[in-house]
Design a binder for these strands. Structure first.
Lengths: 352, 352
DNA sequence: ATCAGAATTGTGAACGTTCACAACAAAAAA
DNA sequence: TTTTTTGTTGTGAACGTTCACAATTCTGAT
């Protein structure tokens, strides 16, 4: 603030002149490099503060340094479909929460982009985005986290990669939650409440996490010594209508389930809907647990008991690790984050 | 694909060599400048496609050109509070929807950031972000859209600015919806259904849009020739508990409202909650309209009739205008976007 | 006092693009 | 044909930073 002749163009050179040192010394101070005398460091810092200097990211990047950008990539079709249908996209919201707050802590910026479901297209699109932006790290979410073409591309370009929802830990930082354990916990919770016939409405059968959850579901039943026919698995395709159909069918059977676990909120709402249509009270006649916990479940009637995925925390962890990698840390590892079972009013002890 | 010695480093020079022209000619082709022979343009384009060249954004920016970045700024306290409370942030989700899709259409990228509610802090934070990122345009949302310090800062730095939720159209591109008209429409809808005692539960009284909506509410009542006491305005502070309290009080009065308009979804849920507690059926005994339409209202029981804000469309329009400005268009103007009244099951004809 | 070694500071080049302007070619006017 | 105008292409410099390395100053041992 002062002459105001050239707004917003305070450069490292201005700081250097003002502090009576060279460019490079200022650069060292900015980047917290060693080998700067304390007195000089203080003088430079003072000049930086006085002038309100902030390094230009583009120039930094040009100089061969980091870009201070983390790229978060989502699936275009799935994301747009959610938005178009007016369904909202809690996943995106939570990603931003975790990603942005973590990036901000380290002076980084988060850029969010969509790429195609189709493998070949996705690779081209990602290539274009990284060529333009040159991010220091990329976060891949389902289903792209399982796409070896994308991780290969990033490896070739030497860009650090974090996968959210992938568990191998090879070549990337992998962040995930214990899907099997979560399903097990949800199931055990129902068993503890006295339920002996429980149904699991799965999402996409070929989706890794659905499979893991089904495994956890079966494991919990077995651990409790229940017979094989205590658990019934249906497929609801993550959507309302197919889920409603399969749930309706389940409840028609001669020995219907007294509790249902749904693979996501939308299918849990379908269960609620079907129950109401059939005159079943929730939770007295039917207990319901969901596997997602978007904000809407707090306001449903009754509010749903749900497994809460640590979406924001997973993205934050991914950012943290990518940023650490860009400052030298090795870019691989497995990070399992804890989930929560949030008890609300849609589950109750089985009525005699 | 090929030698693979230097991955991801195809520069404009490589394209120039491959096409047998100079840097500058390639630059002209990339930027769709005139004065390039068609045959040459085609040859260069071919080389670009063959090599998979994408211009490096940082270098472009350094060369004095655009940054191809749009910055969307939200209020930190309000946004974080929503996230922390597990309430989700549909506004953020919708912003991303509108902003990202529009930016993508023009080869732009969207960066989303939070700045402090406090005016002085906000100014410092925004200054730092624009110094680092040098975006081509900045989108200011409530309450920052009304902060003259921020628009002044952007003006000094010659960065185009779009305000969402501000209506003056001076010095910035302003994008907004007809708040007064929306309230009027909601009110008329209830009047048409035969309601004669209607309550409006406002959010923050000092928040410009609440005031506009109250005005619309009153106008509709007056237009219908209803007496002054037909409309009752309460203050629910945009939150569940205060809203529930004020609604409960309203329903206790000797001539209680038969319909309620809530300034946001959370307060509409409060209305639902209070009605249920008092044994009032919705919509038979009480009609409810909300003013926000987040995804949860589709799944409430009953689903809520609501005014739908065109959040995504407003952000998209803001991006469109900012991008147009960065290519020469004047950076001011007023853009009013249409809202929707979505009829669901929470409103019905007044019972005799 | 002298010198080796370490710590500190500075200098020129580089990053990939665009800008300003110069050079050249082609078309139109004289 | 010659000149003018217009259209097309190329060249050197600039943007703001970091890198690699050179130069200088300090430290502590001999």
């Amino acid at each position: 603030m002062g002459d105001g002749s050239k707004p917003g163009s305070i450069t490292i050179e201005d700081v250097a002149t003002s502090a009576g040192v060279s460019r490079q010394t200022v650069s060292r101070v900015i980047n917290r490099r060693p080998n700067v005398k304390d007195s000089v460091r203080a003088r430079v810092q003072q000049a930086i503060d006085d002038l309100g200097y902030v390094p230009n990211l583009s120039a930094r990047r040009m100089g061969g340094a980091r870009s201070y950008l983390i790229l978060a990539v989502n699936d275009r079709q799935r994301t747009l479909e959610n938005w178009r249908a007016g369904r909202g996209n809690d996943w995106v919201d939570q990603m931003l929460y975790g990603g942005m707050t973590e990036c901000e802590r380290h002076g980084y910026h988060l850029v969010f982009e969509l790429i195609d479901t189709d493998t070949a297209k996705a690779e081209g699109e990602l290539a274009a985005i990284i060529a333009a932006l040159r991010p220091d790290g990329v976060i891949l979410t389902p289903p792209h986290c399982d796409n070896a073409g994308l991780t290969g591309l990033l490896e070739r370009h030497r860009i650090a990669c974090a996968r959210v929802g992938h568990q191998s830990g090879e070549k990337c930082v992998d962040v995930f939650m214990d899907e099997e354990g979560a399903a097990k916990r949800a199931t055990s919770h129902l068993i503890d409440l006295g339920h002996r016939r429980i149904a699991f409405v799965a999402g996409a059968p070929n989706y890794g996490n659905s499979a893991r959850r089904i495994a956890g579901f079966r494991l919990a039943l077995a651990d409790a010594g229940l017979p094989g026919d205590a658990g019934n698995v249906g497929n609801g395709d993550f959507q309302f209508d197919p889920a409603a159909a399969v749930i309706d069918e389940m409840l028609t059977s001669p020995s219907p389930p007294t509790a249902i676990i749904a693979d996501n909120d939308e299918m849990a709402f379908a269960a609620l809907h079907v129950a109401s249509k059939r005159g079943l009270r929730v939770p007295q006649d039917l207990s319901i647990i969901s596997f997602e916990d978007t904000p809407g479940v707090r306001f449903s009637v009754p509010p749903l008991t749900a497994i809460r995925q640590p979406t924001a925390a997973m993205i934050a962890k991914a950012c943290e690790q990518l940023i650490a990698t860009s400052t030298g840390k090795e870019g691989t590892g497995r990070f399992e984050l804890p989930f929560d079972l949030i008890e609300r009013a849609s589950t109750a002890r089985r009525q005699a």
